[in-house]
Amino acid sequence: MPETVLVTGGSGYIGGWTVAELLSRGYRVRTTVRSRAKERAVTEAVSTVVDPAGRLDFAVADLTADAGWEAAVEGVDYVLHVAAPLGVTGGAGTGNNPDALVAPARDGALRVLRAATAAGVRRVVMTSAANAASPSSYATEGVTDETLWTDPDDPTLIPYRRAKTLAEMAAWDFMDTYRGPTEFTTVLPGAVFGPVLTADTGGSVGIVARMLSGAMPGVPRIGLEIVDVRDLVDLHLRAMTSPAAAGERFLGTGEFAWMADMARILREGLGDAGRRVPTRQLPDIAVRLAARFRDPALREITPALGRRNRHTTAKAESLLAWHRRPLPETLLTCATSLLTHQATPTPH
């Protein structure tokens, strides 16, 4: 019998691709949704990549509530906890209350771990964020690895970064006191781009969608470590099955690119389809003034202006033989996929 994997949040961008790839590799998959109404959308999205018939089922469970998690983990071999509670996506507009996002992120992770360890699953792989292994906001340069932990008490942290850090810390603290067969691993991605399964896609992909639409007057001086969603899913699956991955953190970032570099790749690679992509770089002062007086959502990105902090993925490459696609391939595949789906940016 094929092994069964529980994927939390199958309706999400990473979750949907995780479900599709697991099915493509022959696994049986169960995925959580917040309501039965989402089952059809997930099935249709996954069906654009692989036939899920007979090997995909659903469990209704919400990261903010206890109900449903015992049933969700029943009979599964592995758990891939890739879901984030509503609002904990890292995009602008996630809120300015430094504590509002912590409880759902942290408590959701602990609900998954309690259910998984009680059921004795083999391993849980949790999606954290590279932002949980980054220096303080005032640092503008440097390369870091998994041994660094973001300081959750840094007053300049945006709510998303603090929530992801505290959630992963709580998960490791829980596993440090656990005595049983379940193993634990975390994956820390950068900015996730690549093809979309549906038109209803937000998160990092919304940046490319806004560029294509011409909605951006220019690009801020912000850099991203871009990883292809397909490569990120592959890293999760390697972390799920490799004996060397037990008890480890793995950074899953990609090539660093300023948004101006992204714009250039899109303009040059898409031809006429990229004609609306902005090429003008906005002065930092203009972005800060807009954040202060016109668009409060921009306040979450201002700490990143001019920062070129990078992460090394040497650990994932050496222990798990992981590799990544070239940056232009990821960006152009993302853009053409968005154009095909006629996707629009998620409003913030």
Rank of each mutant, 00 (worst) to 15 (best):
T117M: 05
T127H: 02
T201C: 10
A132T: 07
D228L: 06
R122K: 15
G223K: 06
V125D: 00
R111G: 04
P181H: 06
Y178K: 10
R122N: 08
T201G: 03
S204K: 08
L232H: 07
D145W: 12
E225A: 15
P217V: 11
R230Q: 05
V227G: 02
D231T: 05
A105S: 08
I226F: 11
D153W: 11
R114G: 13
V229W: 01
V143A: 10
S213E: 15
V219A: 02
R161L: 15
E146N: 10
S137C: 09
V205D: 06
P195H: 10
A129T: 12
A105W: 06
A191E: 10
R161I: 14
T182L: 06
R106T: 01
L157A: 07
R111I: 05
V229K: 04
P152H: 09
D228P: 09
D151H: 11
R114T: 06
M216V: 13
M126L: 13
D153T: 11
A119Y: 03
A167D: 01
M211S: 03
A133F: 04
D153V: 08
I222Q: 11
T140M: 15
E141V: 15
G214T: 09
G180R: 02
L237M: 11
R111L: 03
I158R: 12
E146I: 04
V192W: 04
G108R: 01
A215Q: 15
L110Q: 06
M216Q: 13
N131G: 14
R123A: 01
R123S: 04
R210V: 10
E141Q: 12
V196C: 15
A139Y: 13
G218W: 11
R111E: 01
P155I: 12
S128E: 07
A132F: 12
D154Q: 12
S204P: 09
S136C: 14
A171F: 11
L224G: 02
V143E: 11
R123H: 08
I158N: 13
P135T: 00
V227H: 02
G108N: 02
A133D: 03
V227M: 09
A130H: 05
D228A: 08
R238L: 14
S134H: 04
D145I: 01
T144W: 15
V112P: 00
T127F: 02
P152K: 12
A109M: 08
A215L: 15
A139S: 12
R179S: 15
V205H: 04
P220C: 07
P135Y: 08
S128F: 04
P159G: 05
R106M: 07
R230V: 09
A215I: 10
V233H: 00
T182G: 15
Y160T: 05
G108H: 04
G180K: 02
S128M: 00
G142N: 09
A116Q: 01
V219N: 05
V208C: 02
P195N: 15
R162M: 04
T186Y: 08
R123W: 04
